[in-house]
Amino acid sequence: MRLRLLPAATVLAVAASLVLAACSADGSVSGASPSAQLTAEARTVTPGKLTIATAEPAYSPWVEDDDPASGKGFEAAVAYAVAEWLGFSKGDVVWTRTTFDQAIAPGPKDFDFNLQQFSITDERRQAVDFSPPYYETTQVAITVDGSPAATATTLADLKPLRVGAQTGTTSLDAVNAAIAPDGGAQVFNTNDDAKLALQNGTIDALVVDLPTAFYLVGAELDGGKIIGQLPDSAGGDQFGLVLEKGSPLTANVSAAVDALRADGTLDRLAQTWLGGEDAAPVLH
Rank of each mutant, 00 (worst) to 15 (best):
A55P: 08
A42P: 09
T54I: 12
A13D: 11
P61Q: 01
G48N: 06
R43W: 01
K109R: 09
L86D: 01
G48F: 02
A69W: 03
L18C: 06
A15W: 03
V78L: 05
F74E: 00
I104F: 03
E64A: 15
T98L: 10
A13T: 13
A55R: 09
D92R: 15
G31V: 11
D112I: 14
L50E: 00
A13M: 11
T44W: 00
R97F: 01
D110F: 01
A55H: 07
T44V: 14
A16S: 12
T54K: 10
A105L: 10
R97Y: 02
S60C: 08
V19G: 09
V78I: 12
I52S: 00
K49N: 01
G48I: 13
L20D: 11
A42G: 07
E56F: 00
Y59A: 02
A13P: 10
V14K: 08
V93G: 01
F100W: 11
G73K: 05
K49F: 10
V45C: 05
G73V: 14
E41R: 12
P68E: 07
S89D: 04
G73S: 09
R97E: 00
C23K: 14
P34Q: 05
A69Y: 04
A42H: 03
V63Q: 01
E84V: 15
A103G: 13
Y59K: 10
A76G: 08
D26R: 07
G107Y: 08
A76I: 15
S17R: 15
A42Y: 02
E56R: 15
F88P: 03
E41P: 11
S33A: 13
L18A: 07
E56N: 15
A83I: 11
F111T: 09
A40T: 13
P108Y: 05
P108C: 04
G27A: 12
T96G: 06
S89Y: 02
F74G: 01
D65T: 11
D67Y: 08
V19H: 12
A83L: 09
V19F: 00
A13Q: 13
L86S: 03
A40Q: 12
L12G: 08
V19D: 14
I52W: 11
L38F: 06
W85L: 06
S17N: 08
S35R: 10
P47L: 02
N114T: 14
A105K: 14
A36R: 14
A32M: 13
K90C: 01
G48K: 09
V94H: 04
S60M: 04
R43G: 00
P68T: 10
Q37W: 00
T51L: 04
S24P: 07
L12R: 13
T46P: 03
D66K: 12
A77I: 09
V11M: 00
V19C: 07
P57Y: 00
A42W: 02
S28Y: 01
A83M: 08
D112K: 11
E84F: 10
V82A: 02
D112Q: 09
A76H: 07
R43S: 04
S60P: 10
G48M: 08
K109G: 02
L18N: 09
G31C: 07
